[in-house]
Design a protein around this nucleic acid. Structure first.
Length: 281
DNA sequence: CACCATGTTCCTTG
DNA sequence: CCAAGGAACATGGT
């Protein structure tokens, strides 16, 4: 479930596994995933390079690579789309059906698996450069958020999904944050008062931080006893407790944890929004 | 068969 | 020019 917290948990894991490893070979099984850019240029830049670091920006993964013979470092950008997974396993492990890219690290392989192939790997940073501030970073402020929202007549739920407003919030945490802030999702962004913007700011940070803490606290699990790590770094058994943490997302007709009224689902900009009609005004 | 799904980008409409 | 909405991308679950 790749929104900011899931990507952050994954990045922390990969940062403990990848640095120091060299890319011996790359197999592109789905060329669509290498985008934008060409497969040939991608392979040329990446093969032979060594991982020096892994970080995150919004929902994007950033891999720092040092090519051989001390040329400047390059940045490999990754995005998991809706169903992407990224893990390191032994070379002999049977390849997943939807493995899109496999990088041979010598004895181990880094696998980018994605059933829907919406995810991508690229050397192009333009999408990353267009992102708004990191919600858990210094650049995200109440004033900045208020100023951005004052310029838009769009529904607040739809605004939150714009990665240029704040980076990393997706469909799940947008609904969750609005519930915590007690703001109705259809409220026009420019109609929120200062107190509501303050609540929303705090709710976003709290929701995202808690999700990261939860994801990082659960022990890492390995599928089928082999050493293939689930991309989100949690065991299937933890899945139940994960969804139990969500107050409104995917809970249509279930009782609101605050007042007991049935949670509602509606569609905004083509995507589901879940909310409590009684708690969120 | 129908509808739904954690995301982004492109195209059209106003 | 910009904002907003919808389709497209591709596969699988219910």
């Amino acid at each position: 479930m790749p929104e900011l917290p899931e990507v952050e948990v994954l990045v922390r894991h990969l940062a403990s596994v990848l640095p120091g490893r060299r890319i011996r070979a790359v197999e592109i099984r789905r060329r669509r995933v290498i985008r934008p850019g060409s497969v040939a240029a991608f392979k040329r830049a990446v093969i032979g390079a060594r991982f020096t670091g892994v970080s995150r920006r919004g929902k994007y993964l950033l891999f720092a690579l040092r090519p051989p013979r001390a040329r400047a470092e390059i940045a490999l950008v990754g995005h998991l789309g809706m169903t992407g997974r990224l893990y390191v396993e032994r070379n002999e492990a049977p390849l997943a059906r939807h493995a899109a890219v496999v990088m041979d690290l010598g004895g181990r392989q880094l696998v980018f698996e994605d059933t829907r192939y919406f995810g991508r790997l690229s050397l192009d940073r333009t999408a990353v450069d267009r992102l708004g501030p990191e919600p858990l970073g210094r650049g995200f402020t109440r004033r900045g958020l208020a100023a951005s929202l004052a310029r838009s007549r769009q529904a607040i739920k739809v605004r939150l999904l714009d990665q240029g407003l704040v980076a990393g919030v997706g469909n799940i945490y947008a609904s969750e944050a609005l519930f915590r802030a007690r703001i109705a999702p259809q409220t026009r962004a420019d109609r929120l008062d200062a107190a509501q913007v303050g609540h929303l700011y705090g709710a976003l940070r709290r929701i995202l931080r808690e999700a990261i803490r939860f994801g990082s606290t659960v022990p890492l699990a390995w599928r089928g006893g082999a050493d293939r790590l689930f991309y989100y770094g949690r065991s299937p058994e933890a899945e139940g407790s994960y969804t139990e943490r969500l107050a409104v997302y995917d809970r249509a007709d279930q009782p609101c944890p605050g007042c007991g009224a049935p949670i509602r689902r509606m569609v905004q900009a083509g995507r589901s929004t879940f909310y409590c009609p009684c708690c969120q005004v």
